[in-house]
Design a protein around this nucleic acid. Structure first.
Length: 460
DNA sequence: AGCCTTTGACCAGCG
DNA sequence: TCGCTGGTCAAAGGC
């Protein structure tokens, strides 16, 4: 039996030969025609700006600030997130919370409190264009890529082009996602205060950038999120076009693992974090980055510093694939749930789905999904948001159609599928409870008409 | 020498 | 119970 299994497995692993991960292998070849399903969001989202504007984003903080009219304190994403994703214990704060006013109409609303938060591939803050002038959350390298994509988009007949100016880069997002866990842990341990929760983020970035710069070939490295990972396995998973790599946090005492799927060209298509780090990210020593001081006393000011660090980090070069991974990866959901409930498919339009087979053994995990080809012209606008509950289309004057919602097996929360139905710039805010977790804008450059798996995307 | 990746084998959950 | 499948182990080799 095992022979057979091994045999099968072996066959399955054949593709891995092509995995661009091996440092010794040239990253050269671009995958040959990776046929991706018409998943649009993939390439979507990328810019931001006030609704109605196109391509000019106010930048993350600016955008965010809009949500926090009453807060003049320096707010870092960390701050924004600190109270939201943190833990299962999270309790919705009142609207007065620094997180912002979510009662505002037109904001994406995620109701139930939960540590889980999902973002569609395309929705990731991933490729943040530098255009906005906000270095914050806008890795240079990625920005370039993105810009190229934009240029391309402009020259093509793509139906739609989405620019994004989300609040953070995917890398940051990843970190950000990761941190909540850390935060959570910290809370559990009771060793840290809320204000400090996010302090770990900054430390993550420097390292990430460092790695990014140094390795142009090490495609197989796990995404840089500030922690060190050791690959302990790789396997071709059924239903997935790409091999999945398994990583463990190198710290023996740390139970965190993550699964990373990469397309043939090395881009991360999905990252699933499992567990929570019970330690702080290693210090990025070599670069003289000061990031270690996360533990000291922290306060709002500290968070401001963090934001600053993010900015500086973004200035750094991020040119290789690995960076792209980080920057492109789109957090799809953050789960802090330990009590997992399987819910069967339900609701509307579950038909379109990149449903993933439910993991057999599930624990807390954070999923980050990214389109295999995230830098292409957007031809469709589909957004999948996996949230703790409801996803409301922003009442921004543009048309959105919710075309589906589904509770994917293995996921605690339903995925909401949205279609952009109009030429528009859409601001989407993801929140948990009353706190904003993430915000991004989507600019639809071209309207389109298309039949999509049974749904007609109307042209307006 | 130490750490990491690779990779075939093995384990365990699930239908 | 069996087969499938995802996840993990661990030896070997590379850096």
């Amino acid at each position: 039996m095992y022979n057979q299994m091994a045999k099968n497995e072996k066959e399955q692993q054949q593709p891995k030969q092509q995995e661009p991960s091996s440092p010794s292998k040239p990253v050269s070849s671009r995958p040959i025609n990776i046929t991706l399903p018409p998943r649009s969001f993939t390439e979507t989202f990328l810019s931001s700006g006030p609704p109605g504007t196109s391509g000019f984003s106010p930048g993350p903080m600016t955008l965010l600030s809009g949500f926090f009219p009453g807060s003049d304190d320096c707010k870092s994403f960390s701050q924004l997130l600190s109270g939201t994703m943190a833990s299962p214990n999270f309790k919705p704060a009142d609207d007065k919370s620094p997180a912002g006013d979510f009662s505002r109409p037109g904001k994406l609303s995620m109701v139930p409190p939960s540590p889980m938060f999902t973002m569609p591939l395309g929705l990731s803050p991933v490729a943040l264009p530098d255009s906005s002038g906000f270095g914050l959350f806008s890795p240079e390298g990625f920005g370039m890529i993105h810009q190229q994509a934009l240029a391309q988009a402009a020259q093509t007949d793509s139906n739609m082009h989405v620019q994004q100016a989300p609040a953070m880069s995917s890398t940051q997002f990843l970190t950000f996602i990761n941190n909540p866990a850390a935060h959570q842990q910290q809370q559990m341990v009771g060793s840290v205060t809320d204000s400090r929760v996010t302090v770990q983020e900054p430390s993550d970035f420097p390292r990430s950038y460092k790695r990014s710069e140094s390795s142009s070939l090490a495609v197989d490295k796990p995404t840089d999120d500030g922690y060190n990972w050791r690959k302990y396995g790789q396997k071709q998973v059924k239903g997935s076009e790409f091999p999945r790599s398994y990583y463990k946090c190198t710290l023996p005492i740390c139970p965190v693992k993550k699964k990373v799927e990469r397309s043939l060209d090395g881009q991360v298509t999905e990252i699933i974090y499992k567990g929570q780090h019970n330690h702080e990210p290693p210090r990025p020593d070599k670069r003289g980055k000061d990031t270690g001081r996360i533990n000291g006393s922290s306060n709002s000011q500290g968070d401001c510093e963090i934001a600053t660090q993010f900015q500086s980090g973004n200035v750094r070069k991020m040119g290789d694939r690995k960076d792209q991974e980080s920057s492109q990866a789109t957090p799809e959901h953050v789960s802090g749930m330990s009590d997992y409930e399987e819910v069967s498919d339900t609701e509307t339009g579950g038909q379109i789905d990149e449903d993933e087979p439910g993991p057999k053994r599930r624990t807390t995990e954070v999923r980050v999904t990214e389109p295999a080809s995230s830098h292409k012209t957007v031809t469709e606008s589909r957004i999948v948001v996996q949230t703790t509950s409801e996803v409301d289309l922003l009442d921004d004057g543009y048309r959105w159609r919710k075309y589906g919602q589904k509770v994917v097996k293995g996921n605690h929360y339903p995925r909401h599928r949205l279609l952009v139905l109009d030429r528009a710039t859409i601001s989407v805010a993801v929140k948990i409870g009353t706190r904003i977790l993430f915000q991004f804008n989507i600019i639809v450059v071209h309207s389109f008409s298309r039949v999509w798996k049974g749904f007609v995307i109307e042209n307006h």
